[in-house]
Design a binder for these strands. Structure first.
Ligand code: MN
Ligand code: MN
Ligand code: ZN
Ligand code: ZN
Lengths: 154, 154
DNA sequence: ATCCTTATTGCAAAAAACTGCAATAAGGAT
DNA sequence: ATCCTTATTGCAGTTTTTTGCAATAAGGAT
């Protein structure tokens, strides 16, 4: 109820329509534990909605983002991926292993507010990903450096 | 000289090779006033290097980013675009008109350092784009809201 | 229940990105 | 100057993403 009701309200008010495609895709995003690419959503959605097109998935995902129901992110794959927008957050993503650390938006709030004020700019809901190396992969890097050093010395 | 010398040093040291393709693409990035997409680079590069392939442009651009000579960014087009890495910076980009404001990295340094410390994470050189509305486009939005309000009231 | 407007979808085709593999060419060694 | 190793490129083909347009269907009105 609350899901459907929310959807109805959010969309109808603005003149948008509720379709089976949107319901299915939204449902898939709800189930998902993390970000999903259009391709992944498409494959899952086909099961419940045989006729569905990949084109529609792309457009629906982008639509949901526009309306504010979903948020796009660029993960380590480099491809766009979507997730439902619950609490605002950002990510630290490891370039080696893909491990993701979630950072609550509050951590960025002060800086963002300052940037808005200083630049007469009104920030939208951003969902950023900062790349780097996680704890483990940093260690591995040290190891390989040592090894390389030893090799050269031989 | 300094350009070529830099290039030689940066690449040869690590076992990479200097090729005409890399030189041309790098040269194009140097001329560019702002971020260029692979497609744009390709079109410009073809002039000086007829045989060049689009594939090579993609790979070279990504290569230059890996080596740290270039940096990727996701502009308002949503497509990846590259630029040379001079002083570290980030962007505030308007979703309406595409206007870009450059923010020096220093503005982010403190927060980033804190995030690294708090999460045992080692951030790479990130180049982020925050979307929103520029001064002008914010005003335009107000106007259209007013108009809409009036229309409904009629 | 039926009609109407038009937002949304599917389809077909294009553009953009990515891959595997064999041919090419840097650049260090002789 | 010639040879050799292998990093890099081009080519052909695949996958991913985007676009134009006609057909479809949501949902307000009658
Ligand atoms: Mn997220
Ligand atoms: Mn930039
Ligand atoms: Zn890692
Ligand atoms: Zn603007």
């Amino acid at each position: 109820m609350s899901c459907e009701a929310d959807l109805a309200k959010t969309l109808r008010e603005r003149g948008y329509r509720i379709t089976s495609q949107r319901r299915v895709i939204l449902h898939i995003l709800r189930q998902a534990s993390d970000h999903l690419t259009p391709g992944e959503v498409f494959r899952q959605a086909q099961a419940s909605l045989p006729g569905l097109t990949e084109t529609t998935v792309y457009r629906t995902l982008e639509f949901l983002a526009q309306v504010g129901l979903a948020h796009a992110a660029f993960g380590s794959s480099g491809k766009r991926a979507y997730e439902l927008s619950e609490h605002a957050h950002h990510h630290l993503t490891c370039r080696k292993c893909g491990h993701e650390i979630e950072i609550p938006h509050e951590r960025f709030a002060a800086l963002f507010a300052a940037l808005e004020a200083e630049n007469d700019f009104s920030l939208a809901h951003n969902h950023i990903t900062l790349f780097g190396l996680c704890k483990n992969c940093q260690r591995e890097n040290e190891f390989s450096s040592e090894e390389q050093g030893r090799r050269k010395a031989d």
